[in-house]
Design a protein around this nucleic acid. Structure first.
Lengths: 110, 110
DNA sequence: TTGACATATTCCCATATCGGCATATAATGG
DNA sequence: CCATTATATGCCGATATGGGAATATGTCAA
């Protein structure tokens, strides 16, 4: 056995910076491939490949329009990431730090 | 040029399921390596390697205690992930769907 | 010191990945 | 049909990766 496939889920799809860039552009509205190529300054085949990965995990959808293919964002697959990360929010949030202090004090008084 | 390093940031560190498992266990409190080995049922060297990646991105910290090394969670590096993903929340949240409807209606009335 | 325990590191393999280049496929305009 | 435009795919090379096995390092206990 060897390395496990990594492009098979949203966590991995999004771990690649260029794919996040693509999503960030698409967040501003749907785009044909060439717009992405221009905006990101990447080679066209590279963009197509990244789009493929994003498609396979459901983060983008395509629609044919003449000879163009319009890509649109679908953020649903990001929800599991959001949920997982959110459970660690106490680690960095000042709000939670203060809450911990209060809870500790309460515990002292018991 | 070729493949870019992927274990160098939190996005990638966390893209590996077993590393998320490790963090999930550590979320319950600090642990020596062997506890992780037992709880996750992984080979010890493998756990040490994953811990190394997590250490390098700052997601865990170590403390020596006798012949054990106690690992502790530090969630701070997760904040950028949280922030990035959060900006896509409208994509899946029903709340935001309803907000969009309201905003569209307001726009109609102008 | 010696031996047992706890952890990290090294070497190796199989494979997944990103990027470049060339090429295939597909739709359109003439 | 042909040329052009738009996109996807295939192949290749370099390298990163996860896991296994063996071994190194480090610490304590007797």
């Amino acid at each position: 056995m060897a390395r496990a496939a990594t492009t098979a889920d949203a966590f991995n799809a999004v771990a690649e910076p260029r794919r996040r860039q693509i999503l960030d552009v698409l967040a501003g509205g749907e785009r044909p491939v060439n717009d992405l190529v221009v905006e990101l300054g990447l080679a066209q085949p590279l963009v197509s490949k990244h789009l493929r990965v994003l498609r396979e995990v459901g983060l983008v959808e395509v629609r044919d329009e003449g000879r163009q293919r319009i890509y649109r964002l679908d953020g649903h697959p990001l929800k599991p990431i959001h949920d997982w990360v959110k459970s660690y929010e106490r680690s960095w949030s000042k709000r939670f730090d203060r809450l911990d202090v209060v809870l500790d004090e309460l515990k002292q008084k018991e």
